[in-house]
């Protein structure tokens, strides 16, 4: 059989066997998968064949264009991190923002570094965070007297510009980029409660590590950097979340977490974050 007429000739048994087995397997599996499996499923006992094939492909008959729900949903915030929102934020002009920020320094300090415990430092904060909070102030999703009026005077582009300005200011919050140098003592075995909560969370209470969103070692768009922030401000905001007074967090994440924290833990976390992550901690 040395010259067995080549691999693609029908008189050679192996191609017949090969193609036959494969064709048989494909036909049986396609018939079973699209004709039988898709037809006899729980919610619709017997679909017609065409609908069954579509369902098998993943195109269900209830696929329809999305309609606006009436009445409109009550959401914690209007901001979703869509490509268009991210583009709007990225289009911020820091020079124009400097001009707008002349109205902010009275409370938030020269160049965004706050000298007061009541008002947060904005220098170095992610522009996405500032943009979202301004929008929440503007719509009243985050009620805080003065800021509502301030935000209503700013357009979306103004918000993006002033956010870009503050993000570029030095000597404020270190950037949260998701990087940290691994160190021991960042698991549940850590004895310092603030450090343990910050890096390992508390699984028993369903509290994720703060660092997963706020850094160091993680980040989430819209979660502000906490390192070097005013400690009383952090503690006050945690209390507002716990009481439900502040309710602009997506999916109620911060409210769920803050409700579980004891006042001592809130205080310890505020101190831990305000003292950590100085300029020397940012890796560039």
């Amino acid at each position: 059989m040395a010259h067995d007429r080549g691999p693609f000739k029908l008189s050679n048994p192996w191609p017949v066997i090969g193609w036959g087995v494969v064709a048989g397997a494909l036909v049986v599996s396609v018939v079973l998968g699209f004709g039988v499996l898709s037809r006899f499923q729980q919610n619709a006992p017997t679909l017609d064949l065409w609908a069954a094939i579509c369902r098998g492909l993943g195109i269900t008959s209830d696929t329809a264009p999305a309609t606006q729900p009436q009445p409109a949903l009550n959401t914690p915030t209007r901001i979703a991190w869509t490509p268009s929102t991210l583009e709007q934020i990225a289009s911020g002009d820091a020079e124009r923002g400097a001009f707008i920020a002349m109205n902010c320094v009275a409370c938030h300090g020269q160049r965004g570094v706050s000298g007061s415990d009541v008002y947060p430092t904005l220098a170095g904060m992610s522009p996405a965070v500032i943009y979202k909070q301004l929008d929440d102030f503007r719509t009243g999703k985050r009620p805080w007297g003065v800021m509502g009026g301030v935000a209503k005077a700013l357009s979306d582009q103004d918000s993006a510009d002033v956010a870009a300005y503050f993000a570029s200011q030095p000597n404020g919050l270190p950037p949260v980029d998701g990087y940290r140098v691994p160190e021991p003592g960042r698991s549940l075995r850590e004895t310092n409660p603030a450090k343990r909560l910050a890096f390992a969370g508390d699984p028993a209470r369903g509290i994720p590590p703060c660092a997963a969103c706020h850094g160091q070692g993680g980040y989430k768009i819209g979660a502000p950097a906490l390192q070097q922030q005013r400690p009383d401000y952090i503690e006050a905001e945690l209390q507002f979340f716990a009481q439900g007074v502040r309710a602009n967090d997506i999916f109620g994440q911060m409210r769920n977490i803050a409700k579980q924290l004891t006042p001592d833990e809130m205080h310890a976390l505020a101190l831990f974050y305000s003292e950590s992550g100085g300029p020397q901690a940012s890796i560039r």
């Binding site: 998968g33 499996l37 369902r55 098998g56 492909l57 993943g58």
Partner: peptide, 14 residues
């Protein structure tokens, strides 16, 4: 979720 059951079945059969 982004793949239909039909092809998941075909490939499991194979």
């Amino acid at each position: 979720p982004e793949l239909g059951d039909g092809f998941k079945f075909v490939q499991s059969f194979l």
